[in-house]
């Protein structure tokens, strides 16, 4: 497929209208959210398209870095809003998402898998950061709720002379797994249940299927790396936020 334009997008809005009509006919109370979603996605994506065109044309290292920083900040805020009950959730999310994403990006640059060009860095950063964001939020929430609901187990271990890390070891492991579940499931089913987004996009844009597959594999391993690092950092920092330096459990009141 080539030469897709705004007219094709406007025509595809018919499908959205059909979805709205079905919702209305079946009296599913989602018309408002659906309408907002249709308008927001249209405005946001068109705006991003123009912004990316500007960034790609300019090819400035500072501008690219600023875009990555904004993405990390927005991702951290989204992760924070999913785990507000945890002390320091924003900073934990920022450190976890930022470290996981930047280490992964740096490795890809050092190993010359990609070059420092906006057309590589920006979309890959978007994928990395959004996956790291979900992983961090899930890991933070899981560990925090496990510590709260297993307070007696944690304090029994502390009272038996164990440190905070040993007292929460199994909850830490579960939380890291929670953060990684989505990427692990993705890797298990990729290509069988669905063709993933990056690959589909490339094929739609006219790329060779094999080239698209190679890119998709790179994306999968890249996401595995960032999600693992982000989950582990999120869990470590969440653990620290639940204890005093004297291995005393402190729960937010």
């Amino acid at each position: 497929m080539t030469g897709v334009g705004i007219e094709n997008v406007l025509i595809s809005l018919i499908l959205a209208a059909v979805a709205l009509a079905i919702g209305f006919f079946w009296k599913i109370p989602v018309q408002k959210n659906m309408s907002i979603g249709i308008i927001r996605s249209f405005i946001q994506l068109i705006a991003v398209g123009y912004a990316l065109k500007y960034v790609f044309d300019l090819e400035s290292i500072w501008l690219i870095s600023a875009v990555i920083l904004v993405m990390i900040l927005v991702g951290s805020h989204a992760s924070y809003s999913m785990s507000k009950q945890v002390r320091g959730a924003f900073l934990i999310s920022f450190a976890a998402i930022g470290t996981g994403s930047l280490i992964t990006l740096c490795f890809m640059l050092i190993l010359k898998i990609i070059t420092f060009e906006a057309r590589f860095i920006i979309p890959l950063s978007g994928m990395i950061i959004s996956n790291a964001m979900n992983a961090a939020a899930l890991a933070i929430n899981r560990l925090s709720s496990d510590i709260k609901s297993n307070r007696l187990a944690v304090e029994t271990a502390l009272a038996l002379g164990k440190g905070k890390r040993e007292s929460c070891r199994r909850f830490q492991q579960q939380a890291v797994i929670a953060g990684m579940t989505s990427i692990l499931n993705f890797m298990k089913t990729v290509g069988i249940v669905a063709l993933p987004g990056a690959m589909t996009g490339m094929i739609l844009a006219g790329a060779e299927p094999l080239e698209a597959v190679f890119w998709q594999l790179i994306v999968a391993y890249m996401l595995l790396s960032s999600v693992t690092i982000s989950s582990i950092i999120a869990v470590e920092l969440t653990l620290t936020s639940h204890f005093t330096p004297h291995h005393q459990l402190k729960l937010k009141s």
Binding site: L152, A153, E155, T156, A157, L158, A159, L160, G161, K162, G163, H246, H247, Q248
Partner: peptide, 30 residues
């Protein structure tokens, strides 16, 4: 050191918590 102190000043909770394992594992935990 708080961990060492707690081994010298032991605490038995009102509802004792057992780690989900055998009695031996619970004793070896210490």
């Amino acid at each position: 050191n708080p961990c060492r102190l707690r081994r010298r000043v032991g605490y038995l909770f009102q509802i004792p918590y057992m780690f989900p394992a055998t009695v031996k594992d619970n004793l070896l935990y210490v």
